[in-house]
Structures are given as structure tokens and as C-alpha cells.
């Protein structure tokens, strides 16, 4: 596992970090400094190709500025996916710690629920949840949270199990430290690095799923600028304005690639730094 020690891979990591910084900057700055709003229509300038005067990346079927919409889309994606990951961690981490510590009753029950939740492939569970909650960005976050909580629970459980068998934790238990204090002092600090790695990689997947769900029409409603909705609209204008279909996908792909790369590097770094915690 010495992939990032080679120079070429380090280069890829730098590129990935640069992409993330660029995405974050444009998500923060474009909404403030762009002369356009994401929903401002200009029906005289529909389907302007990229490089048109005043519209760096062209305009869409309502003459809205694509660059501005992409930047707002980054913001929307980060919010929805971030909310999902946060919820998943809030549900999954306590469940994982509980399952790792209480092995007789809680562990099998939680394992069963985790297994069952993981047997809904792909976006299926999210679609079912949104069917009941109704469509919208918040609902997508909730669905993502429920979808990814098992992943957090599973990893945290394994980690808790191995940490709680470490000598110093055993000793602390023998000395009569209360369970809650033991969790806060010993378990959580050891589990956190791995949670961070999972959070990064799930954040990338959540962004893709968020795009897929809003592409299906289950996310934010138009005219909200999200990447999925932009692709949904672009599908009707493939022959007139191919840039509308290409650009959101390229931006999405670059962000996911960057997050994956940073996530890989992070887990590599943690693995090399703490050899004991690598056996998940």
C-alpha cells in the first residue's frame, strides 16, 4: 500500500486538492460576485455556447448563466450531501460504539438491521424513503443519512471492538472507570480518524446520489440550480446545446474524483501512521 509514495500519485493528490479548493472558492465567491442570479432568465440569449460574451460557460434554455448555476449547484450539492453524511454519522457512530461494547444483545440486533439495510441496492432505499417523505433537498439529506448510517455503524463497531480489547482500555475498565467516560476518553478518539475517512468517501458518493435523485426529480424542485436538475433539463436539448449536458457532469466528476483521491490519501496516511488501527 505505498501508492502515494510514488511521485506521480503525489501529483494527482495535489491536483485533487486544487480541484476541491477551486470548487469551494467558486461555490463561495460566484454567488456573491457573479453579475447574474441562478434563476435570472434572458430569453433573448437562449442556448448561448460556452465562450459567449458575458457568459463564460454559455446559457441554458431560459438564457440563464451556466457558470453561475454550476457554482450554486456546488453549494447545493455540498449542503445536501454534507447534511446526509452528518446525519449518517450521528446515527451510525453511536450505534457502532454500542454494538462494539454490548456484544450480547445489541450487537446481533444492530448487525441484523445493518445487513438488511445494506440489501437495498443503490438508490432504492432513498427512493422508497422519498416516496413517503415527499421530494426536496432536506428529504434527500434524510434519505442519504439513513442510507449511509449502516456503513458508519459497521466500521465503528469493528474499530470499537479492537480498541476495547487493547490493554489500556481493559485496565481502565478494571479500575472501575464508568462506561460513558471510557467511551469518551478511549473509544471515540480512536474511532474518529476512521470516521473521517468514511465521511470523506461517503460525501463523494452522496454528491453523486444527490445528483441522481434530483435528476429523477426527487430532489429540489426547479428552478433550483442543482447539477442533477441541470442534467435533467439538458437531456431535452442534446442536439441544440450539448454543453448543457457535458458541463455539469464534468464538474460533478471532477469533484467526486478529487474527494475520492483525498479520501484514499487520508486513509493511507492514517494507516501508515497508526499501524494498529489499520485492520478494519
Amino acid at each position: 500500500m505505498s501508492r502515494y509514495r510514488r511521485r506521480g500519485d503525489r501529483g494527482i493528490l495535489y491536483i485533487a486538492v486544487a480541484i476541491l479548493i477551486a470548487a469551494a472558492l467558486s461555490a463561495l465567491l460566484v454567488p456573491v460576485f457573479s453579475p447574474y442570479t441562478p434563476t435570472e432568465q434572458n430569453l433573448e440569449l437562449r442556448f448561448a455556447p460556452p465562450g459567449s460574451e458575458g457568459h463564460l460557460l454559455g446559457t441554458d434554455e431560459f438564457g440563464r448563466d451556466v457558470a453561475t448555476r454550476l457554482a450554486w449547484g456546488a453549494w447545493a450539492a455540498a449542503q445536501t450531501a454534507g447534511g446526509g453524511v452528518l446525519l449518517a454519522a450521528l446515527i451510525g457512530v453511536p450505534l457502532g460504539v454500542a454494538a462494539g461494547l454490548e456484544r450480547r444483545v445489541l450487537d446481533p440486533v444492530i448487525a441484523l438491521v445493518v445487513d438488511a439495510a445494506l440489501s437495498f441496492p443503490g438508490v432504492l432505499l432513498a427512493v422508497a424513503i422519498i416516496a413517503v417523505l415527499g421530494s426536496g433537498a432536506v428529504q434527500v439529506s434524510i434519505a442519504l443519512g439513513i442510507m449511509f448510517a449502516p456503513l458508519f455503524a459497521r466500521t465503528v463497531r469493528a474499530e470499537t471492538l479492537s480498541v476495547s480489547q487493547e490493554g489500556y482500555v481493559e485496565i481502565s475498565r478494571g479500575l472501575g472507570t464508568r462506561t460513558l467516560r471510557r467511551i469518551c476518553m478511549h473509544i471515540v478518539p480512536n474511532v474518529l480518524p476512521n470516521v473521517l475517512v468514511i465521511a470523506t468517501s461517503s460525501f463523494a458518493i452522496c454528491i453523486t446520489i444527490e445528483a441522481a435523485l434530483s435528476f429523477l426529480g426527487l430532489g429540489s424542485a426547479p428552478p433550483q440550480p442543482t447539477w442533477g436538475l441541470m442534467l435533467r433539463d439538458a437531456r431535452n436539448y442534446l442536439s441544440v446545446a450539448p454543453h448543457l449536458a457535458i458541463l455539469p457532469g464534468v464538474v460533478l466528476g471532477l469533484c467526486v474524483f478529487a474527494l475520492n483521491t483525498v479520501g484514499d490519501a487520508l486513509s493511507e496516511y492514517l494507516d501508515s501512521g497508526h499501524p494498529d488501527t489499520s485492520n478494519t
Partner: peptide
């Protein structure tokens, strides 16, 4: 790397764009 980063529905749209 590319296959993991690019969502399949976007691949579908691009294939439609190219071949259809």
C-alpha cells in the same frame, strides 16, 4: 479512477449525445 468518479447516468447522457 474515472469510472468511480463519473456517475453512470451522466455516461448514459454522453453516450446518447455521441451515438444517437
Amino acid at each position: 479512477h474515472a469510472g468511480l468518479a463519473i456517475p453512470d447516468f451522466w455516461v448514459g447522457i454522453i453516450l446518447l449525445l455521441i451515438f444517437s
